[in-house]
C-alpha cells in the first residue's frame, strides 16, 4: 500500500528523462487555454501562443502529469464532469446551512465545533485532494490534515455536519478514480 501511494509524491528533478506523451498532452491543453484567453486568431498571436506553450510545457509538464497517470485519462475526466453537478448541489445545501447558522440569533447554542478523525480508503494523491477539497466545500466541515495514507482530521461546525463523513462523497470520489 505504501509504495503505491507514495509513487507520485516527489516531483522528478528536471534532469531525469521524460517521455513525450505528457509533454504533448500538456502542450495541447495549454494551447486550448491560450486560445480561450487570447481570443485573437491572427498569425502573430498564434505563433506567440505556440512558443509560450512550448516554454511552459518544457518547464512544467512533469508537474501536470506524471507518466503513469496518462492511461485512462479521458474516462476519468468524463466521470469527473459527472461528479461536478452533484458536488454543486451539495455545496449549495451546505451554504444554505451555514447561512442559516450565521443569521440565527441563538447561533452560539446551535454550533458545537469538534474535530473528527477517520481513515479514508482512497489511495492516490489526486483522489485524496479531490475528496479533501470537496469536504472543505461542503456542509460545515473543513479538512485540517490529510496524511498520504488517507488519515483525515476534519473540523466540523456542529454535530449534524460531521456525522455523514466519509459516507457517500467518498464512494463517489472513489468511483471517479476507480479505486
Amino acid at each position: 500500500m505504501g509504495s503505491s501511494a507514495l509513487k507520485h509524491n516527489s516531483p522528478k528533478s528536471p534532469r531525469q528523462t521524460r517521455s513525450i506523451a505528457p509533454f504533448l498532452l500538456t502542450f495541447f491543453i495549454l494551447f486550448g487555454i491560450w486560445l480561450l484567453l487570447s481570443g485573437r486568431f491572427d498569425g502573430l498571436h498564434i505563433s506567440l501562443g505556440v512558443i509560450s506553450c512550448l516554454i511552459v510545457a518544457f518547464l512544467s509538464s512533469d508537474l501536470l502529469f506524471t507518466s503513469s497517470e496518462t492511461k485512462g485519462m479521458t474516462v476519468t475526466w468524463l466521470r469527473f464532469l459527472r461528479y461536478i453537478p452533484w458536488l454543486l448541489h451539495q455545496v449549495f445545501l451546505a451554504n444554505i446551512h451555514v447561512l442559516y447558522l450565521t443569521f440565527h440569533p441563538r447561533m452560539m447554542d446551535l454550533i458545537d465545533p469538534e474535530i473528527i478523525r477517520f481513515r479514508s480508503k482512497l489511495k492516490s494523491n489526486i483522489s485524496l485532494l479531490t475528496f479533501a477539497n470537496s469536504i472543505t466545500l461542503t456542509p460545515g466541515t473543513i479538512t485540517v490534515y490529510v496524511s498520504v495514507y488517507g488519515d483525515f482530521q476534519v473540523h466540523a461546525i456542529d454535530k449534524p455536519s460531521g456525522r455523514p463523513l466519509p459516507g457517500e462523497m467518498e464512494e463517489r470520489v472513489g468511483r471517479i478514480f476507480s479505486e
Binding site: 516531483p11 500538456t26 495549454l30 487555454i33 491560450w34 484567453l37 487570447s38 485573437r40 498571436h45 506567440l48 501562443g49 509560450s52 506553450c53 516554454i55 511552459v56 510545457a57 518547464l59 512544467s60 509538464s61 508537474l63 501536470l64 494523491n125 489526486i126 485524496l128 485532494l129 479533501a132 477539497n133 479538512t143 490529510v146 496524511s147 498520504v148
Partner: peptide, 25 residues
C-alpha cells in the same frame, strides 16, 4: 502538506501560461 502540494502541481502550469499571455498581449 499533501493538499497544498498537489494543488500547486496542478495550478502552476496555468499560472505560467496566463503570465506569458499577459506579457504577449
Amino acid at each position: 502538506d499533501l493538499i497544498i502540494k498537489t494543488t500547486g502541481r496542478f495550478i502552476i502550469p496555468f499560472i505560467q501560461i496566463f503570465a506569458l499571455y499577459v506579457i504577449a498581449h
